[in-house]
Simulated scan of single mutants.
Amino acid sequence: MTRRLLAACAMLLGTAVLAREAPVPQQVADGVFVLEGAREHFSRANGGDIANTGFIATPAGAVVIDTGASLRYGQAQRAAVRATTGRDAVQVYITHAHPDHFLGSQAYADVPVQALAATAARIARDGDRLAQNLYLLVGPAMDGTAVRVPSALATPAVAPGDASQAPAAVSFGGRRLQLIALHGHSAADLAVFDDATGSLFAGDLVFFERAPTLPDADLPAWLAALDRLAQLPVRALVPGHGPVVRGTQAIAQTRDYLLWVRDTLRDAAARGLDMHEAMRLRAPERLRRLAVLEAEWQRTVMQRYPAVEQGIWPAAR
């Protein structure tokens, strides 16, 4: 599908043309496609299109994983699904309740959209506020966007440190997908694993070459979730942000970053550093290439350091 056609899809409601063109689907395995987001923060230039989304072609229709940050994006994504696979979407799964992953769901009004129960509850409670925040950050790209609350999957969440919970299995036209319920990046994080190709859509449990975001993080649970994902026979891993990886090195990089954050915040508190001093601490050389590292570190310190100082953030204990 051409960039020109995708750009046209992004203007279906007459919104302004954005500096960033709509992403083009990349085929990463047989029937598995990814639309890679910008490794940036939200801006008018990128229209909020910073998360990876994707779809899996099946004989029954396409299974879509995450719908992006706006109605405009969701419509362009759905057009790309039809053009790429020759079929429409038959099912949508939302990995978690951060706005760059679910606000395009309005474009799938006639398609089932599902998420873990805690994700659906968070979107119902906070979705309008999250959408309004994005309007302020990215402007016209959000025109016409409204929240669609997904229906809740019955799949139970895995307790921190417990890797024994069997994933739910679903089949579309004979193509079997595992729905793996975890948490750690947020209160509920859904991963989707395609048995046929070994492709894992990890949502924001995994970042690659981009510093992870931690506003809702439970680090012990997140680290346990990474251990669970590392047990899968992964051949192609789609992180929530960053390029597709052949193997599990993105899991290792995410774990490395989280452990650095945990240990650095603990050490800063033990040394009696104030927040501004903690913000000036530098990451080790191996992590300095990560996109938006400095901004994410400062954000994490502002959001988490007071709790670390008081010993009330789980990662601080």
Rank of each mutant, 00 (worst) to 15 (best):
V34S: 12
D162V: 04
E285Q: 14
G68F: 13
L153C: 12
R78F: 04
A269T: 04
A146I: 07
H183Q: 15
G48H: 00
D227L: 10
A278I: 04
D110V: 09
V261T: 05
Q77F: 03
R288V: 08
R175C: 03
A307S: 08
Y108F: 15
A159W: 00
A118K: 15
W297V: 03
D195R: 13
D189A: 01
Y305N: 01
T84C: 11
T84R: 15
L35Q: 11
L136V: 08
F33C: 09
V206A: 06
Y135M: 10
T300Y: 01
T248N: 06
I50C: 03
D216C: 06
V292G: 00
H101R: 01
L136N: 13
R125V: 00
Q91F: 11
L179C: 09
R82H: 14
G173R: 13
G47D: 08
D30E: 15
D227G: 03
A283N: 01
P215R: 11
V147C: 09
R289S: 11
L219G: 00
M302T: 11
T119S: 01
W297Q: 04
M275F: 00
M1H: 14
P140F: 12
H101V: 02
V308A: 11
I312Q: 01
R148D: 05
A221W: 06
T53K: 15
L258T: 12
A211E: 03
V92Y: 05
N52A: 06
I180P: 00
P243D: 02
S151M: 15
T254Y: 08
A316G: 06
V81C: 02
A159Q: 07
F201L: 06
A196E: 05
A79L: 10
G174H: 08
Q75H: 14
V111P: 01
G174R: 11
F172D: 06
D227Q: 08
A295R: 05
P167T: 07
S151Y: 11
R280D: 09
G240V: 10
